[in-house]
């Protein structure tokens, strides 16, 4: 039980840190990494869940969820980095707060 709590507390902390970073950080790479923090926090909670009931065996469902979640997060991260790179190439900007000087397309 206490192990589970440690995992949960750690996970929530990571999630909160990530949320702060995603919302407050200007730099786009910071934002992408912060989102990964959030994901890691949730995965930590899920991993902890798998070991909740010592009398039975480990619960495989949370582990399946974590594996799936990791795959999804990797895809999101890759897409995020690709967009950030292209945005930087197109505008020279590394954040969304400054207006790009060049006119947009369509």
């Amino acid at each position: 039980m206490s192990t589970y709590l440690v995992y949960t507390a750690g996970g929530v902390l990571l999630y909160a840190l990530g949320t702060y970073g995603l919302l407050a950080k200007r730099h786009l790479i910071h934002k992408v990494i912060s989102a990964n923090f959030m994901g890691s926090g949730v995965f930590l909670i899920l991993i902890g869940l798998g070991n909740r009931s010592p009398e039975g065996g480990p619960d495989p469902v949370p582990q399946a969820m974590v594996l799936t979640g990791i795959v999804v997060t990797v895809a999101l991260t890759a897409l995020g980095l690709a967009i950030v790179k292209r945005y930087y190439t197109a505008t020279g900007l590394d954040n969304l707060d400054d207006e790009p000087s060049a006119g947009g397309d369509r």
């Binding site: 995603l22 919302l23 786009l28 959030m38 994901g39 397309d105 369509r106």
Partner: peptide, 28 residues
């Protein structure tokens, strides 16, 4: 591939990530 579209896409992506992780926390 225009700057405006990339900017909108990045913002959309971050909103999407925030939603995704929060939804998953809820599921957990």
């Amino acid at each position: 591939g225009g700057a405006e579209a990339l900017r909108a896409g990045a913002r959309y992506l971050f909103a999407s990530m925030l939603g995704a992780m929060t939804y998953l926390l809820g599921v957990a």
